[in-house]
Amino acid sequence: MAGDKMLFVIVIGCGRLGANLASGMSAAGHSVVAVDSRQSAFDALDSRFSGYKIEGDATEFAVLQQAKTVSADLVVAVTDNDNVNLMAAQIAATVFKVPRVVARIEDPRKEDIYRALGIETICPATLAGRAFMASLESTPPKGAHNA
């Protein structure tokens, strides 16, 4: 993120990851709106969060309008449903022309389609896979100890 500039950020999905992101961004001084379809999800936000909470389904256009998506600098779509993330991210990028949109996806096979639609993705499975591979590659073969 660009230096100390305050951003208007919308976090869609307030689960473990979303709540963490929203709280962290809010603590860093950004203006944050958290969106989740369950009111109880906002319990996961910590005391550092001073933004707005909107209870609503992010696939409902009126909810994205209410969140003022049109003025957002960044939209992060991190619900636990890939297709909800894909839809909210596309609407943010294409209809509301949000300059930066990042979505979390569970299914790595969907990464291509997001890329084709101009949406940045973060896939925990791919990242974890890479980290495991890197860690495995640095493991010395068993025979090395006996050499």
């Binding site: 696939t59 890939d82 297709n83 909800v84 084709a116 639609l117």
Partner: peptide
Amino acid sequence: DQDNLAICQQARI
């Protein structure tokens, strides 16, 4: 709606 969009976009692209 989100599933229908995902289906159409994957089919198209």
